[in-house]
Design a protein around this nucleic acid. Sequence first.
DNA 1: AAACACACGGAAATCCATTTCTGTGGTTGA
DNA 2: TCAACCACAGAAATGGATTTCCGTGTGTTT
Lengths: 340, 340
Amino acid sequence: MPRTESSTPTVRDVAQLAGVSPGTVSKALNGRGQLREETRQRVQDAADKLGFHPNQLAKSLIEGRTYTVGVLTTASFGRFTMPLMTGIEDSLGAGKVSTLFCDSRGDPLRERHYLQELLSRRVDGLVVTGRKPDPRHSLGRLPIPVVYALTQSEDDGDLSMTYDDRQGAELATNHLIAVGRKRIAYVSGPTRHLSTRLRQQGTEDALEAAGMKLDPRDVLLGEWSEAWGRTAAGILIRQAEPIPVDGIFCGSDQIARGVADGLREAGVDVPRQVAIVGFDNWDVMVQGSRPPLTTIDPNLTMLGQLAANRLLNAIDGGELGSGHILRPCDLVLRQSSMSS
Amino acid sequence: MPRTESSTPTVRDVAQLAGVSPGTVSKALNGRGQLREETRQRVQDAADKLGFHPNQLAKSLIEGRTYTVGVLTTASFGRFTMPLMTGIEDSLGAGKVSTLFCDSRGDPLRERHYLQELLSRRVDGLVVTGRKPDPRHSLGRLPIPVVYALTQSEDDGDLSMTYDDRQGAELATNHLIAVGRKRIAYVSGPTRHLSTRLRQQGTEDALEAAGMKLDPRDVLLGEWSEAWGRTAAGILIRQAEPIPVDGIFCGSDQIARGVADGLREAGVDVPRQVAIVGFDNWDVMVQGSRPPLTTIDPNLTMLGQLAANRLLNAIDGGELGSGHILRPCDLVLRQSSMSS
DNA sequence: AAACACACGGAAATCCATTTCTGTGGTTGA
DNA sequence: TCAACCACAGAAATGGATTTCCGTGTGTTT
């Protein structure tokens, strides 16, 4: 009896139609073995006619590779992970590798479950990501390569890749110095966030290198919000002794936008009187701000690309490496720091 | 000779260690067949010791199900697809189904390629998504169920789910009417976007139902930007005949924020003199605005959940359904439309 | 004409987990 | 005591594609 064939065709269906064996179909379609051109063509025609596409599962089972990479994120699809994902896809897509997404939402139990799931599915590698203020616990030894991106593993045996907060802050501060600012303030988020501390460190280093100092009164730490930026602006305006603050490095574009609004509404001209540099290069903030913000771009997409590339390389047998890799940030110039 | 076993253990490894056959291992671990309790335990212990987890690939091959759903998006990981994805994950995760993400970035060629890839991987179903101003072409008949979410298929035989632009606009307008506004304006994005037209329609319908009319001068269409919102605010202020505009429905929160800024800076009190309602419930805009914005929430996460649920149901043999399903939006009240 | 080489394509094993079928022991009942 | 039956676990087939190994048949060489 004829098989009730309306489902997806297999090699056997193609073989039957072409009058050859399944093995021959495989060879014909993959250009392996030695077949007569006529046979190859016949198989090809049969495959086309049936709309045959090999079952990747079966392939993976044999090859021992799934051409799939798991992405395990703690922060839900957020503003920071988004560009990272784009970068990851850039690299993986080119390598014909697909992406299995799992969002643990910060729940360790969920994370364990997803990890197990991904391992069961025999992904070839893993990218662990998520915005975390501090280094996260390691997933431990796994049979596949793992890259921690945008988040850092506690274990130095793991490979972590993040952008360089400190270097970014130095870049921002040096720019403010370069445009002639004499008293530079640092407005940022909560101290408990590592980023806040690192960026302050970078600011201090840059100032010191220029023979300047960060006045403790000019370090204002609050929340990552516009409202805090506006508040901070109000505080800074009142500190004009011995000289007024004329440059502000903000720990985020949101804060920077708040600062810009606060200053403008107090009648302070940006950038003439005060130059502002933000952090993140978050377009809605950066473009929505008046004036548009000079900012530090953490190059998240590139970070994603690099992480994925490292992973692909390791999957192909290369060395994964270990330790903490810090990728440099870039300075993006806009009006908030430069007279046009 | 002993197999050089450091790789992931298989049923055979477990079987060997437990001194039983592979088949027995399967039965023991899955609670099937009739085995002595002692044997079951022995196998379990062996599995635990080796850290055995069954290869999902092999399972899928037999079952004919991969417990994987493909998500094909045209818009890169964006602001709109993000909450949708979260919703999709909500539903799928609960059903032990994983998500294979593909981002075609609006490139039809890439999309075709990804589709083929997903089919090769034998995903159980497909969610097609992406922000598109107009209905998109159908993927056609596929061997698996497909749901179009947040985007609409041209083919009525497909199942599309989007939020209801028109109803959202009615909600907004009715609210403005309810808080006593007598002259309501509509500020939105480009006419070429379907959303712009639908929301205008909704606004007109609501006004008409209340015995009011949308003055053509009060329809301002530009871009989806804050800058346009500020510009529009300036225009509206000057139109005070016969009575001043006292309510503005904006096609996006970005525009609404711009309008709010424009009005405030022109000395117009929001919401006392002019009430504003936005669209999207995009937190940075809604919270960053002064005052915080009353807005329309398109409930994207719920839309994602529903789409995924429909898909899961169809995968389990249920009826997928077809046509265009419009999900209602919600009104979220904040200060921009109500005196505190 | 005998011997050999090669082109071609089929049969079977492989990947791994599951399931059905089968067969062995031991136990129960007539 | 022998037939009947049950508990238990192994053997083998399954799914789909690939690959290795082999056996044809044709063509070439001396």
